[in-house]
Amino acid sequence: MEHGATIKHDQKKSPKTGDWRYMHPEVDKEKCIGCQTCVPFCPEASIEMKDGKADIDYDYCKGCGVCAEVCPVKAIVMKKK
């Protein structure tokens, strides 16, 4: 059996989908209550909790604005570059 058709996951080969963005989310760390509501809804999984606050990975964030929309305290704001 030939195994040549298998593609292995390699994050280095992945497109940096952050290029797609024309608005970017900004987290107001003072306002963020660390509820993690935004985390599972991010299609790119680019939100992580750092020191109990939401932190965005701009390498992959496409700037859709879902996080800003679901944030219950409006701690995330979409801004133009």
């Binding site: 996951h9 994050q11 992945s14 497109p15 940096k16 989908t17 797609w20 963005r21 985390v39 599972p40 809804f41 991010c42 299609p43 790119e44 999984a45 680019s46 939100i47 992580e48 990975d57 390498d59 992959y60 496409k62 700037g63 859709c64 604005g65 879902v66």
Partner: peptide
Amino acid sequence: MNKELTKYLSSGHSACAGCGFPAI
């Protein structure tokens, strides 16, 4: 990139911005 969420499906896919299925 959130390590826990990307255990099976990583970032860098090209679904439209604001698509629903990656979260599913």
